[in-house]
Each structure stands twice: as C-alpha cells, then as structure tokens.
Amino acid sequence: MPEFHMIPGGPRPVAPFSHAVEADGWVMLTGQMPTDPNAPDAPLPQGIEAQTARVMDNLELVLKGVGLDLSHVVQCRCYLTAFERDYAAFNETYASYFPADRRPARTTIGVTALAVGALVEIDCLARRPGA
C-alpha cells in the first residue's frame, strides 16, 4: 500500500496534495515551489537563481523528512515560466546541487504559468536504497 507523507515543518502546500507518496521503495515528491517553509506568506525570492535554490532546498527538506537526500533522486521534472530567458541560469543553480557524475535523469518544460506566480517548480522521483 502507498504511504502518504506530510513533512512536519515542510513547505505549506499550495494545493491539495501530500509532500511525497511512497510505494515499493519509490518515493514521488510533489513539485515544490520557491516558498519559504518558515515564512510561507513572504514574497518569493527574486530571480530564477534564488527561486531555483529555494525549490531545491524545499526538495531536500521533504527528502530529509522521509529519510532520504538528493543522492537518492533518480529523475526530476522541471517547469519554467520563462524558458528561453531562464534556462541557462536555472541550469547553473540546479547543477550545483548534484555531483557531475550523479545527476538524475531530467526533463525541463516551458509552461505558461505556475502556482503562486513562481518562475520554477521541480518534482522528483527517488528510490530507497535496498528497495
């Protein structure tokens, strides 16, 4: 049976979802927004680099809440509202979170809008060791 995880102290959901759902050792993380878990009503960080860093930090927070970290991530889907403008800067910040020889599979998609007016959203799939 799937396990539905809500992480204490995790980012406040912007829609009806669980932070993560786990089944058979696979952990699917809901797309994270660049909101601050400690100040969810604060304005979003300015610029794609700051928003990407906040999203990645939020993913790390959710992963930690289920006993994992970014080294367990096998795939990411990334959504950008200003793809052509932000793609290169997004890649620089995103890449800084993974060793060059351990980057997950990834798809990056340009979209017309994201919740809370975000420039970026990322969801991911992780795998428990030994599962």
Results as ranks from 00 to 15, higher is better:
M56D: 04
L114M: 09
C124Q: 02
Q51M: 06
V116S: 09
E121F: 01
D41S: 10
S71T: 13
G25Y: 07
L29V: 09
T52V: 05
F4W: 13
P13M: 07
A95Y: 05
G9V: 06
Q32D: 05
P104F: 05
S18A: 15
A95G: 00
L68W: 05
A15C: 12
E22V: 06
W26N: 08
P43H: 05
S18K: 02
H19M: 09
V73K: 04
I48F: 08
P13D: 08
V14G: 01
C78W: 01
T30C: 14
L59W: 03
G9K: 05
E121D: 13
E121H: 02
T52N: 08
T52S: 08
G130Y: 02
R77H: 12
L114W: 06
I109H: 10
G9R: 08
N58K: 04
A115D: 11
P13T: 02
F90C: 10
L29N: 05
V73A: 10
A42E: 10
A100Y: 03
R54W: 02
P129T: 09
I122Q: 05
Y87P: 00
A23N: 10
P40S: 04
P2S: 13
A113E: 14
A42D: 11
V73D: 05
P16V: 09
S71K: 14
G117A: 11
I122D: 04
V62W: 09
A89L: 13
A88W: 02
P43T: 02
A89T: 12
Y79E: 14
Q46I: 14
G31F: 03
T30G: 05
G67H: 10
V66D: 06
L61P: 00
P13L: 04
G110L: 07
D69Q: 03
P45N: 07
L68Q: 06
P104V: 03
Q46T: 13
R127V: 14
Q46E: 15
V27K: 04
A126I: 08
L114K: 05
F4G: 01
D86S: 12
A115E: 11
A95L: 12
A100F: 08
V120I: 15
R103M: 12
V14L: 13
F4V: 07
H72N: 15
G25I: 01
D57Q: 15
T30K: 07
K64D: 14
E84D: 15
I48N: 08
R128A: 02
W26S: 12
T107I: 12
V62K: 07
V14C: 08
F90T: 06
L59R: 07
N91G: 00
A95H: 08
V21F: 04
